[in-house]
Design a protein around this nucleic acid. Structure first.
Length: 602
RNA sequence: GCCACCAUAGCUCAGCUGGUAGAGCAGACGAUUCGUAAUCGUCAGGUCGUCGGGUCGUAGCCGACUGGUGGCUCCA
């Protein structure tokens, strides 16, 4: 996890970026005197500024703006802060409607520049430099000279809704990156190039993991044989871990009648993520966006006693969600997905233990994969969404959120809290990770459901012989196959541990004389449960090795006359290291051991 | 879904301001039999994403659609 040294807001870099945003706004207004400015904060790696302009910006505009910025920056203009009254501010920004809206929010003490609530009315201040004045709380650098003219770059133009609300007007956002020195800028740009190389969409094609096909449809991945091996390995891992943790496995259909999703609350609260219904003989059917309603049916299929609890039902179920077209992103965001799903039905007393049991499961998985850059996020309901995004029972929301918070605190698990991010049926702990190109995703999730069990009349008989409604924990520590494999591709840059590598060993003959022998070796390896193939193509050994390296095969066995005669193999490991003339049995033992332990090292 | 950009052979890409397609890799075939990241040669492969418009004529201009990319919104 990231350790905080100095708050970003207090750093020179933050001021440089914030100030660069102002300089950019000046340059844009010079180009569009009637343009309207909104907000322009620093962000990770840079800054942006949102504008409402009379026409769309072109890449040429961007170049021109950047060029003008370099001139302005060299002018050594001072950044001057002035605290003013709301009325004065309204005069200054009389022709800037977005600023007037911001002033309104500040004056009433209600809202900051993003529309988030504030504690009380803050000072209203402006910053001026050269010809540009912005409503701004700062801080900024002393003069524009501190923005190095060779240490920033405008990256791209993007659409962005005013105040992040899709009902509002779409503005034009210019993203820029800014650093304290040219070297830092160059390093950052280089880092972006490197990140692209491990983009799972690129690696997925190169390593033949998955494809998308226009005729099949967007967001509907086809798993190639190599990808299917990975999926199968993940599933085997999950089964093993879940069996040990006391789960039972179930299987449920991909389709159900409308009635089930009305009862579950999916149609009232979740319909816009669902595929539209298909109707036959007057009955509507939906493909499932989640497995829970069917698991609830399995729970209620017989009478349950407190002695049976907790009941843990697991299924790698395939779900379908209608993600909006612009939201799709390789394997990380798809429309058909196999979830590492399970539902745990338990009593309130059992809740903490079960909840933490799931967190433990996460940790085991994360250890196994060496995942250490993530944040656990406790997602809470938002008051405004009650009855719309969230089931309408604030008392239970607060109660359940407290239970989760207490469990996490007691377990000593660090997390951050976020308002208005919960599932419709309850709060959740999400594990946030980042893709190679910096997009944030929820990998694993652990959700508490205090609402739906009641809608399904779920009950168990407690010690007193009285019916009680169980709590339900929805959890997906391995996420979905799609997102997990996408993540692992980037996490390992395609250099997978042996156990999950699609091809574990490639046996390479040096000349045709060894072809029969290497085929036989590969067969023997397969007999030992190792995924191996023989390369008996007419290419030279060097070319065969190169191809195996490009496919990131962990072990290459090179076999010439020497090895054939001695009944040995020469091992080339993916990292380039070599070990000549080792007995086959020794190599087999080594590989079997790595696989059995799911070892990270080769 | 919204804003912008992009779409040429299986893959990666070239094709100047419109005169009707080209390379490397992959593939097939042939030669080569080689010691740790590319042996050589030959051949084959594209109604230039789709549909419509403009033009004497376009892969290159205009429009719509489809798909992708960068964001926004949303999410496992």
């Amino acid at each position: 996890m990231a350790q905080q040294t100095e708050r970003y807001e207090d750093t020179q870099l933050y001021k440089v970026r914030h100030s660069a945003a102002h300089v950019m706004a000046q340059a844009v207004l010079e180009l569009f005197p009637d343009g309207k400015v909104t907000i322009g904060p620093p962000v990770e790696n840079g800054f942006y500024y949102d504008f409402d302009l009379p026409r769309n910006l072109t890449p040429e505009d961007l170049q021109q703006i950047e060029k003008r910025m370099r001139q302005i920056v060299q002018g050594k203009h001072e950044f001057k802060k002035t605290v003013i009254s709301a009325d004065e501010a309204r005069k200054i920004f009389a022709d800037q409607p977005y600023k007037l809206e911001l002033i309104e929010g500040l004056e009433q003490g209600g809202l900051d520049e993003y529309g988030n609530p504030l504690d009380g009315p803050p000072d209203i201040s402006i910053y001026q430099h050269d010809t540009f004045t912005d409503l701004c709380r700062g801080p900024h650098v002393a003069t524009t000279k501190e923005i190095k003219q060779d240490a920033f770059k405008l990256m791209n133009v993007a659409g962005a809704y005013w105040r992040g609300d899709e009902k509002n007007k779409m503005l034009q956002r210019i993203y820029g990156t800014a650093w304290e020195s040219k070297k830092e800028l160059e390093d950052y740009l280089h880092q972006l190039e490197e990140a692209k190389k491990r983009d799972h969409r690129k690696l997925g094609r190169e390593l033949e993991i998955f494809i998308f096909d226009d005729e099949v449809g967007p967001g509907l991945p086809l798993w190639l044989p190599n990808g299917t091996v990975m999926v199968d390995e993940l599933e085997a891992l999950a089964k093993e871990m879940e069996t040990n943790a006391g789960y039972s496995r179930v299987k449920t259909p991909h389709l159900t009648k409308e009635d089930l999703f009305i009862r579950s609350g999916h149609l009232p609260y979740y319909a816009e993520s669902m595929y539209p219904p298909m109707e036959l003989e007057g009955v509507k059917y939906y493909v499932k966006p989640m497995n829970c309603p069917m698991h609830h049916k399995i729970f209620s299929s017989k009478g349950r006693s407190y002695r049976d609890l907790p009941v843990r039902l697991a299924e790698y179920g395939t779900c379908y969600r209608y993600e909006k077209s612009g939201e799709l992103f390789g394997l990380m965001r798809v429309r058909s997905m196999q979830m590492n799903d399970a539902h745990i039905y338990c009593s309130e007393e059992q809740f903490e233990q079960e909840f933490m049991g799931v967190i433990d499961l996460y940790k085991k998985y994360f250890d196994l994969f060496g995942i250490d850059k993530y944040v656990m996020r406790l997602s809470l309901h938002g008051k405004a969404g009650l009855g719309k995004k969230y089931v309408d029972n604030e008392r239970l929301w607060v109660k359940t959120e407290d239970m989760v918070r207490r469990a996490m605190d007691n377990g000593g698990v660090p997390y951050v809290e976020v308002i208005d991010e919960a599932a419709f049926y309850g709060p959740k702990i999400d594990v946030q990770i980042w893709s190679a190109i910096g997009k944030e995703f929820t990998l694993a999730t652990n959700q508490v459901d205090f609402a739906v069990p009641e809608r399904f009349d779920l009950k168990f008989t407690n010690r007193e012989g009285v019916d009680e409604i169980p709590l339900c924990i929805h959890r997906a520590p391995l996420s979905t196959h799609e997102r997990m494999v996408g993540f692992l591709l980037e996490h390992y840059a395609g250099n997978f541990p042996v156990w999950i590598s699609p091809e574990q060993v490639r046996v390479i003959s040096i000349t045709d004389a060894q072809n029969d022998y290497v085929e036989q070796l590969a067969k023997e390896l397969r007999g030992n449960g190792i995924r191996a193939s023989a390369d008996v193509s007419a290419q030279r050994m060097n070319a065969k090795i190169r191809q195996a390296q490009l496919m990131k095969v962990p072990y290459m066995l090179v076999v010439g006359d020497n090895e054939m005669q001695a009944g040995q193999v020469s091992l080339r490991v993916r990292d380039g290291s070599q070990q000549n003339n080792i007995p086959l049995a020794e190599f087999v033992a080594r590989v079997k051991d790595k696989i059995a332990r799911r070892a990270g090292e080769l």
